[in-house]
């Protein structure tokens, strides 16, 4: 096994993609310096600053240039340093990248990856801590990936880069420096749109994304001590969503908890709950329970932020509600 981190795996996976395909280029703010979380560390040294390019603080131009470059033969992997900044690039992403293939009747392709990261818990305040993936999930034409570990980065980022559609990869700043052992032989790429069952169980299904996957696994461990057998599923990609794997689990357990760090209101959990109830209504023994943050901006003060963040305790409460 190789001991590594999520952030180092991002850098290593990008390096492998750049070695394998000279069309892969990386640009964004500070990427040639490694970025604030070191997710592009070493790339400029290995591949030169013609392929690993620092940009001005111009999120619309970063995303827009990726679109033009992708339509012209490159496979850009661009970085928006915090998902909170994506509003500045959203027109490019939503009205440009997501629609070019469609509006052109299939003539254009936009094989770009937009990497960004979100999540609270680092005392970043309301504008550096959000989980905004539901904005992106709502847009036809975008694929949305949320790796929950170094392993998932290694499995999914190559598939995102190989995809001919625009893919947004939302990483987790909280998970970046978490240690993890990966197999010596590496992790083979896995297709987007496939969920992963991380723990099998009979009594309740917990679907969790990103950081909440680890909270769900901890909740499942504690539930096991109480004799409750929870199944934990990481959808890994929110678009396309592997409903089949989730529904097959719910058919067996009859109960579903959906957990994400984003605010519940209008969140991805609502979409998953709606799809599951439509697919498995007569197999459900209880209403679907959602776990997410309260409907407020992320507060700064440690006391307030800790209270804001959903975690294992909230998942346990939700499971109790689902089993009630």
């Amino acid at each position: 096994m190789v001991r590594t981190t999520y952030a180092a795996t991002v850098a290593a996976t990008l390096a492998a993609a750049m070695r394998a395909d000279e069309r892969v280029v990386v640009f964004g703010e500070d990427v040639a310096l490694g970025g604030p979380y070191l997710t592009t560390k070493g790339l400029a040294e290995a591949f030169g600053t013609a392929r690993v390019v620092n940009t001005p603080i111009s999120e619309a131009a970063i995303c827009g240039a990726a679109i033009g470059a992708a339509q012209s033969g490159l496979r850009p992997v661009v970085e928006i340093m915090f998902v909170d900044f994506i509003g500045l690039a959203l027109d490019q992403l939503v009205n440009g990248a997501a629609k070019a293939h469609f509006m052109s009747g299939g003539q254009l392709r936009v094989p770009m990856v937009l990497r960004t990261q979100g999540g609270a818990g680092q005392r970043g305040g309301a504008q550096h801590s959000q989980s905004l993936e539901s904005w992106l999930v709502h847009v036809p034409g975008l694929k949305v990936v949320m790796p929950s570990s170094a392993r998932e980065v290694a499995a999914l980022l190559p598939s995102a880069i190989a995809d001919d559609s625009p893919v947004v990869v939302v990483e987790s700043k909280t998970l970046y420096f978490r240690h993890e052992d990966l197999p010596d032989e590496g992790v083979a790429p896995e297709p987007l749109g496939t969920a992963r069952v991380l723990r099998q169980g009979r009594d309740v299904t917990i679907v969790a994304t990103s950081r909440m996957v680890h909270e769900a696994l901890e909740a499942a461990r504690q539930l096991a001590m109480r004799g409750i057998d929870a199944e934990v599923i990481d959808p890994r990609t929110l678009v396309p969503l592997d409903l089949a794997t989730i529904a097959a689990s719910v058919v067996r357990t009859g109960r579903l908890v959906v957990a994400h760090e984003a605010v519940c209101h209008g969140g991805v959990g609502a979409e998953i709950a709606a799809q599951v109830q439509a697919a498995c209504f007569y197999d459900l023994d209880a209403p679907v329970v959602r776990v997410g943050a309260p409907f407020t901006p992320v507060p700064l003060s440690p006391m307030l932020e800790d209270a804001y963040l959903p975690g294992t305790a909230e998942i346990l409460d939700a499971v109790d509600a689902a089993l009630d």
């Binding site: 131009a61 827009g64 240039a65 679109i67 033009g68 470059a69 339509q71 440009g96 254009l108």
Partner: peptide
């Protein structure tokens, strides 16, 4: 759109395509 003739298209959002042009030019530079 007619990319086979080099036309990467018309955008309905004012100025949206200006950064696309920079990206396409960057690809040309490469």
């Amino acid at each position: 759109f007619d990319p086979a003739r080099g036309f990467l298209g018309g955008s309905g959002i004012v100025a949206q395509h200006l950064p696309h042009a920079a990206g396409a030019a960057w690809a040309a530079q490469i």
